[in-house]
Nucleic acid binder design. Structure first.
Lengths: 240, 240
DNA sequence: TGTATCCGAAACTACTCAGTTCCGTATATA
DNA sequence: TATATACGGAACTGAGTAGTTTCGGATACA
């Protein structure tokens, strides 16, 4: 999906699930951007192992400067690469950003290895780890920088949804579904809505109010809102 | 943000609390931007009644294009004013935007005239009016366009907080406090956190997920999350 | 009615940045 | 070792925009 040609990217959003390394083996072609299926293969090959470094540099700049504030020169400088090298691999700034966001998906949150403590509260609290919090913070910063572009780029919007929004909601959905299955909470609750409480409140706190999303905040959301909303007592029961 | 009168903005954040109309009475001076206390008063006076039109045009462009996408020419064209006129009144794009956001505060949500139906649910539902929803939608659009600038401009950040974030939270705080006073909900609940549920979820839905914040959504948040979180049943009680 | 000032429109300046081209060097294939 | 190509670096092009200046015309005060 990296080095995506305009039309392909627009018409086949699922392609963004592939990672850059995959294309490396297939497209050993020439110097131009993912074109010319002709079988030439002489000379030095492009070092695709550097793609992740460049994409990560792009994410850093994106988080610090926002989409409009980010320049290709900044990304090149941070990646210690030449500007021309970036344009050999991605046809435009927009496609570089889409690729960078898409490749951010993997890295945290493996859905197959979620905590299973036996209680919903235990599971939710187990997700409040320093590493998870830091990762989420960076994602929120990146999202803030892309916010004003979202409405102008449906492709980027869906990429962000798949890379940032959906994974986190998915975790909560799974934990809630388990709680329903073990009879801990009523099966009439709106899992979809409940799963979005914590992501929503964290995003609002970070993006809009510019306040830190720390462990205490997340725990107070779990105990003060999420658990009461599904009919369970929080850490401190609040009965009159 | 670029162009943000580096020194002034950095050193005197409180100044942003003033609005242009206030300056109108005081500064009937000359042709330059709020300078020269000298007592000249000959010739045509500046028509400050047009300031709100210009600021409103700025907000429209801001909502549609975002801060970086907004140009002074766009604002001037929409306000049917000359570019020079804008620069006669505001020294820079940044200050124009700060002023526009600050002047958005008044217009909806008069805290002295809130619904009082006797129940928390009744009060909250009474706030879900088409007019309120539309106003909030525009504010969210504007916020999205300013998001990437927030971290670079503390002045703008606090202006947005005062104009958009705080008023809405304040309404919810008042309604919740009333419910506590009449004994409808426990006084141990975290009013501050509960008051932010609906704004947070609306912002997330609109800004991040690009979905409409309509009446049905707001009601489902009230009945499915806010009321259960304070220990009250929603419209449909969800007991196992 | 004269005049100082404002107005909208448009031309102009200075600058930034996306994207391109060129260069000398490094490196993988034949 | 010869060749074709990628590389980092830097100069270049072209478009767009913040902010300024200039202009003829409108307007409020004296």
């Amino acid at each position: 999906m990296n080095t995506q040609t305009e039309e392909k990217a627009a018409t086949t959003p699922p392609d963004l699930s592939t990672d850059p390394d995959a294309a490396a083996e297939i497209e050993t072609t020439g110097d131009d951007v993912a074109e010319t299926p002709g079988p030439r293969k002489l000379g030095r090959k492009r070092d695709h192992s550097r793609d992740p470094e460049i994409l990560d540099a792009a994410l850093d700049v994106l988080a610090e400067e926002g989409y409009d504030g980010m320049t290709i020169d900044m990304v090149a400088a941070r990646a210690k690469a030449g500007k021309a090298t970036l344009y050999r691999r991605w046809p435009s700034k927009g496609e570089l950003v889409v690729d960078a966001v898409a490749c951010m998906k993997r890295g945290d949150l493996d859905l197959d290895n979620l905590p299973d403590t036996g209680t919903l509260r235990g599971d939710l609290l187990a997700m409040v780890k320093p590493r998870t919090i830091v990762d989420a913070g960076r994602k929120l910063q990146i999202m803030a920088g892309l916010m004003s572009v979202l409405s102008r780029s449906p492709e980027l919007a869906s990429t962000i949804d798949a890379a940032i929004v959906e994974p986190r909601a998915q975790v909560n959905r799974i934990l809630l579904r388990r709680a329903v299955e073990r009879g801990e909470i009523a099966e009439t609750i709106d899992i979809e809505a409940i799963a979005l409480i914590a992501p929503s409140m964290a995003a609002y706190r970070s993006l809009v109010r510019q306040l830190p999303v720390d462990r205490d905040f997340l725990i107070s959301v779990i105990d003060g809102i999420v658990l009461p909303a599904v009919g369970l007592p929080g850490g401190k029961t609040a009965e009159a």
